[in-house]
Simulated assay, not measured.
Amino acid sequence: MSDIEARLSALGHTLPAAPAPAANYVPFVVTGKHLFVSGQISSGPDGLILGKLGAELSVDDGVQAAQRCALALLAQAKAATGDLSKIARLVKLVGFVNSTPDFIEQPKVINGASDLMVEVLGDAGRHARSAVSAASLPLGVAVEIEAIFELV
């Protein structure tokens, strides 16, 4: 178990199995020292976290959905590298929030992923980021997040 997985466990999180792609794409691409992870959707132990922020879901629900995306991103990173200790840093997150037109708390929602990455990776988890609204997301999920990691 890597230090990253030990920190995840200490925080009460379990690394899920890396989700299989749902369409015609690969879950990750390694090129040079960079790992690009395809968008990971909000899925928890009980299934998909569905809904629209600003309607049936609260900001807290969105934060939890974003945390699930972050865990899936780390699961894909482990699948790509075999060992999370090969992550030098998180470079960037791009987060999409399924939200109503008047919802403006996208940054708070995506903080669920950002905060988790910093808790687990320390300073190497501080990253550039975008947090944007989407009229809908695949399967009706609440959040989708993609990532770029630098590898050692």
Rank of each mutant, 00 (worst) to 15 (best):
L151K: 06
G125N: 02
A77K: 07
L48M: 14
I148N: 08
V152K: 06
A88D: 09
A65R: 12
A65P: 10
A142E: 02
A75E: 12
I41Q: 10
E150N: 08
V63R: 15
V29D: 06
A6W: 00
T31Q: 14
P138T: 06
N98H: 15
P101M: 05
L137C: 08
V152S: 10
A66C: 09
A88Y: 04
F103P: 01
S133E: 01
P27G: 08
I41S: 11
A135Y: 03
N24R: 13
V120R: 00
K86G: 08
E150W: 09
Y25N: 13
A131E: 15
T14F: 00
D102T: 11
I41M: 13
Q67R: 15
S42G: 14
P16G: 05
V91A: 05
G54Q: 01
L93Q: 04
S99P: 07
L74M: 15
P101R: 08
M117L: 15
P45F: 04
A113C: 14
S99G: 11
T14V: 13
A142R: 03
M1T: 06
E105N: 12
L74Q: 02
G95R: 12
E56T: 07
E146V: 05
D61N: 02
F149D: 12
S99R: 03
A6V: 05
M117K: 03
D102A: 08
H127M: 14
R126E: 00
Q76F: 05
V118C: 02
A134S: 14
R126I: 03
P21T: 10
V91S: 04
V30A: 08
I110A: 04
A77L: 07
K52W: 03
S99K: 02
I104A: 14
A66G: 10
G140D: 09
K33F: 06
T31V: 05
S136M: 06
G140E: 10
V97N: 09
D115V: 07
S2H: 11
P27Q: 09
T31F: 00
A55S: 15
A18K: 01
I110C: 13
T81G: 10
N111K: 10
